[in-house]
Computed example of a mutant assay.
Amino acid sequence: MDPMTDIPGFPAARPLFLADKPFFAAVFAELQPRVSELTFANLYLFREAHDYRLTRVGDSPVVLGKGYDGEEYFLPPLGGDVAGALRVLLDAGMTLYGADEPFVSRYLAVGGVAVEEDRDAFDYLHLRQALAELPGNRFHKKKNRINYFTARHSFSVVLYGEAHRDGCLALLDEWRRVRNGIDSPSLELETKAGAEALMLADRLGLEGVVVLVEGGVAAFALGERLNRDTSVCHFEKNDPFMEGVSQLVDREFNRLLFTDCTWTNREQDLGEPGLRAAKLSYHPDELVKKYRARRV
C-alpha cells in the first residue's frame, strides 16, 4: 500500500493513521534508525503534539512536523532519493530536524546549508545491562533509593497487560495533576500520548513493566525496539510521593525486556534542567547527537 501522493510544485501531506504501521515498520527495518523519534509508535502517539504529517517528495517518504514552539520542520527523508528530497525541502525554506551524525556527513556536507547541533534533542544512550544491574560506585545512589523502596513496601513487578491499563491510566492522570501549572507546555500533550500508548500498546507493538504496591500501580514504563540492538523507553511514570520507585521501574524495564539488545535509548531532555540532571545522573555511554539544517 502506498498512502502518499504528489502534487506538482510541492508535496501534499496528510495525517498519520494506524494503518500506516506496516509501511513504517518496513521502512525502519531497512533504515535501522538511532534517533528516538524514528519509530511508528512515537510518530503516531505524538502526531497531535507535533502535527506529524506524511508526504512524498519525489520517491522519498517524508514526515513533516512542528516543535512545541510552533516551528515547522521535516524529519530526515525515509529512503528513495534522499539528496533530491533534501534539496526540494531546504530550497522551499523548511528546516530539517533530527539528523544524526552519519546523515549529516553523508548528505549535508555541502555548501549553502547551515547545520547546527540541537543539544536539547540529544538522545541518552546506555548499555542495557548496566541499567539492568546498576553495577559499581557510579550507580550507588540509584541502588540506595531502590533499597529504600524495597525495605518499606511489599511489591511485585509484572509485564504490562490489559489488566493493568486502568491502574496505569489513573497513575498517569495523577502524574499530570501533580505537575499541572509547573511543568512545560507539553504536559497535556505528553499525557494524552501516554494514555493512548497504554490503550493501544498491543497494536503499536509496545511492551512494558508495571510496579504494583498493595495491588495498586506505583509505576510503569513502556517502550519498544528502536533497531536491531537498541530498545527505546518512551514513557516512564511513577507515584511522585513514593521514593525509589522510579529507579526500580527503570531497572526492571531493562532487566526484563529486550534482553537481546545491547543498548537502551532513554530519549532526550527537551532542555528542561531537572530532566537533564536526572538523565545525566544515569551516566550515559553516549549522547546521540541530533542536528538541524537550513538553507542559507
Rank of each mutant, 00 (worst) to 15 (best):
K192R: 14
R119V: 15
F17D: 11
L198A: 05
A130Q: 14
G216M: 11
A218E: 13
R56G: 03
G271H: 02
L38V: 03
A170M: 06
A109G: 03
I146V: 13
G208W: 12
V63D: 05
C168P: 01
A26H: 13
L198E: 10
E214K: 10
G194N: 02
M94P: 00
K289G: 01
E214H: 13
R165H: 02
L16K: 03
V63N: 06
E214R: 13
V88D: 06
G136W: 10
G67L: 06
K237T: 03
A193Q: 07
V211D: 07
S246N: 09
L18N: 05
S184K: 04
D51Y: 05
F122A: 03
L172H: 08
D173M: 03
E37T: 12
L125M: 15
H164C: 05
A114V: 15
L89M: 14
A278T: 11
D239M: 00
K279S: 04
G9C: 08
L90G: 07
L189W: 11
R152M: 00
A221R: 05
P240D: 06
H50Q: 08
L125N: 11
A132L: 09
A218D: 11
P77Y: 08
R228K: 13
D260F: 05
M94L: 15
F74C: 01
S105Q: 14
T5I: 12
L134W: 14
S186V: 07
